[in-house]
Simulated assay, not measured.
Amino acid sequence: MSVVAWTAVGSLAAWGWLLLGQGFFWRTDQRLPRREAPDSWPDVAVIVPAREEAEVLPFSLPSLLAQDYPGRAEIVLVDDGSTDGTGELARALAEQHGGLPLRVVSPGEPEPGWTGKLWALRHGVTLAREREPEYLLLTDADIAHAPDSLRELVAAARTNGLDLVSQMARLRVAGGWERLIVPAFVYFFSQLYPFRWVNRPGSRTAAAAGGCVLLRAQAAERAGVPESIRQAVIDDVSLAGAVQRSGGRIWLGLADGVDSVRPYPRLADLWRMVSRSAYAQLLHSPLLLAGTVVGLALVYLAPPVAVCVGVLGNDAAAGWTGGLAWAVMTGTYLPMLRYYRQPLLLAPLLPFTALLYLLMTVDSAVQHYRGHGAAWKGRTYARPQATPDR
């Protein structure tokens, strides 16, 4: 057999492992667990870090104000140095829509050693603790919640004895680039952190989705967060790891009724979203970067290359083996496309999307070594703390 055919065999073997041995990452059935209404509903503080969010607040904040929650809840929006009127708009929306009480506060510029979002969360958590809530809902400014979202999250946490419940918000998919890249973003995330592994008691795999995290206040104090993860750029995974290491039980799944309203109309917008933290995910390690590039090439790029060689070069072994690996890859992507209500014909294009992610990851490393680090909304973190080991 040719070198290409043997490479395709390696890719097919890798897909056999991913299909059966990686926590069935490709399935999309991890949704909120069993829920029963508690005898008394606990107090909750909803904390929203917001920086330059005037564009999305009209589509997200009213959904929080309108939460149908039987207990006492309040919203603390932390305006993190915005210059676009984020704080003023939030107050105007609260006055217009009513609903849950809203406090808008500002933390000032981050102290050395803090990333911006975690600095804002620290300020919000500190203020919220004055009223001793049992739970904290940490949610991003671009996340819109169904009216029963908070009630369902609290019921799931109480019923199952969970210290952290996180839902991966359904990201916006409207334009062509969003259709190509966004479902794959969640697919790759779940491949790296299989939700079943995260949710298994005693597991060493920890992850959360920062857009929607319900956190027991006592668990946060026990884990020392957000202080213990103050430099993290991938703050959601770091948060879950800190809670898990301190003995807390965590859960992560896909959301129904929790949606991101932030648009990513251009490839450049999506590129920045991925590249700003990709190299931090690899612990800023050139060896891990090299391994990731080789792994992505073997798993995602080798099958279509082998099919082309098989067809154009009359290499039947390469063609059939590459085609089978490509078929398995395509099949594992179909559930995510169904979840995002996208055409299933996009599934065979996953190798092209993987190539884009490979280039984004390399660009993330290049930007890091140029001293730009993780740049976001006017702030640059030259050497952020990487995500803890799984």
Score class of each variant (00 low, 15 high):
Glu109Arg: 09
Ile143Ser: 03
Ala174Asn: 11
Leu150Ala: 00
Ile229Val: 12
Leu162Ala: 07
Arg170Tyr: 10
Glu227His: 10
Ala208Phe: 00
Asp236Phe: 05
Ala128His: 07
Ser238Val: 06
Ser203Arg: 09
Val165Ser: 01
Ser246Trp: 11
Val213Asp: 07
Ala169Glu: 15
Arg204Trp: 08
Arg245Gly: 08
Trp114Lys: 05
Ser190His: 15
Gln244Gly: 09
Pro112Gly: 06
Gln167Cys: 14
Tyr193Cys: 02
Gly202Glu: 10
Ala120Ile: 02
Asn160Glu: 04
Ser190Val: 11
Asp140Gln: 03
Ser149Phe: 00
Gly202Asn: 05
Pro133Arg: 03
Pro147Arg: 12
Ala219Pro: 05
Pro107Thr: 02
Arg196Asn: 06
Val154Trp: 01
His123Ser: 15
Val165Gln: 00
Gly248Ile: 05
Ala242Thr: 06
Leu136Gly: 06
Phe195Asp: 08
Gly224Cys: 09
Ala208His: 03
Trp177Tyr: 14
Arg179Asn: 14
Leu162Asn: 09
Gln167Thr: 13
Gln244Ala: 04
Phe188Lys: 15
Trp197Ser: 13
Glu130Met: 06
Gly175Glu: 11
Pro107Asp: 04
Leu127Gln: 12
Gly210His: 04
Asp235Lys: 08
Val173Leu: 07
Asp142Lys: 14
Glu134Ser: 02
Ala209Glu: 09
His123Ala: 15
Ile234Thr: 15
Gly247His: 13
Ala220Gln: 01
Arg249His: 09
Arg170Val: 14
Arg129Leu: 00
Phe185Arg: 13
Glu134Asn: 01
Gln218Asp: 14
Val198Arg: 04
Val237Phe: 15
Arg131Leu: 07
Asp163Arg: 05
Gly116Tyr: 08
Leu239His: 05
Lys117Ile: 07
Ala220Arg: 01
Pro107Arg: 02
Trp114Thr: 09
Phe185Thr: 10
Lys117Val: 07
Ala217His: 04
His145Val: 00
Asp140Glu: 12
